[in-house]
Design a binder for these strands. Sequence first.
DNA 1: GTGTATTTATAGCCTTGGCTATACCTGATA
DNA 2: TATCAGGTATAGCCAAGGCTATAAATACAC
Lengths: 140, 140
Amino acid sequence: MTERDESLQQADRFARAREAQSMALLEDYVELVSDLLAEHGEARIADIASRMGVAQPTATKAVARLKREGLATARPYRGVFLTDEGAALADRVRARHRTVVALLIAVGVPEETAELDAEGIEHHVSDRTLAAFEQFLKGR
Amino acid sequence: MTERDESLQQADRFARAREAQSMALLEDYVELVSDLLAEHGEARIADIASRMGVAQPTATKAVARLKREGLATARPYRGVFLTDEGAALADRVRARHRTVVALLIAVGVPEETAELDAEGIEHHVSDRTLAAFEQFLKGR
DNA sequence: GTGTATTTATAGCCTTGGCTATACCTGATA
DNA sequence: TATCAGGTATAGCCAAGGCTATAAATACAC
């Protein structure tokens, strides 16, 4: 492979990582809304904000983006709900999170640290890598 | 633990992930500058831009931020160089990247996928997790 | 049913990290 | 050495994701 090709490939990797990053917040919010709906039967803006550790207008903005992306529905002053697509995404994200935490623990990471790091790591775990993690966990 | 405590803890995790993210680009640029210096003896803005897959002014801006953070030095129309701190960071980042790739491969991730995913994952791997990875790789 | 407290929305600001277009150096060549 | 091509900087734009302050709507208590 020429040096130029390597450079292009590296640029692609960075582009991919940037794109994953733009999905990450969306995923976090969707999962959180799903959690709140399961726990309390509703997802209020105030709860979303406090669980995400952001100010309330930030949560409002994020929900607007979820709506724009077709992942959630919300009427003013009412709670937030997930579309089918949003709910499916939430399930995938939750499963991936659990797998990442389990993998980290399996290779010797302390449980608390695993939870902390998984929050950032999970968004960059591709389907192939996720499959490998599951295989590894199964085969122990 | 009360529900409120759990919520606070979760908010902290998100805050941590957000902070890690703000370091990630800095780390990528520092490592790239280090690579270019090693390969070509100099790090030109144009090369940085093409390897990062961004437009040239974006690279210029990033270098300005590196300077602001005390990681690099640069004079207009001259190349970019790393401070001692920047060079040390580059070394740590490079080592961490290698360890993450190695760990992914060790648990069964295909090599190419490992390289792809590591680019995003590495920035969220804490020192504790890194240590666990190294331990795991050694003990096989 | 009125008034107040709480919750949500809106306005407006900041920084980061992208971009394009354009101006400005610098170095190589004729 | 004058010119010009290429590399770099600057200006100015955008979207995302934070924030505070404030307006508006809802819900609850009396």
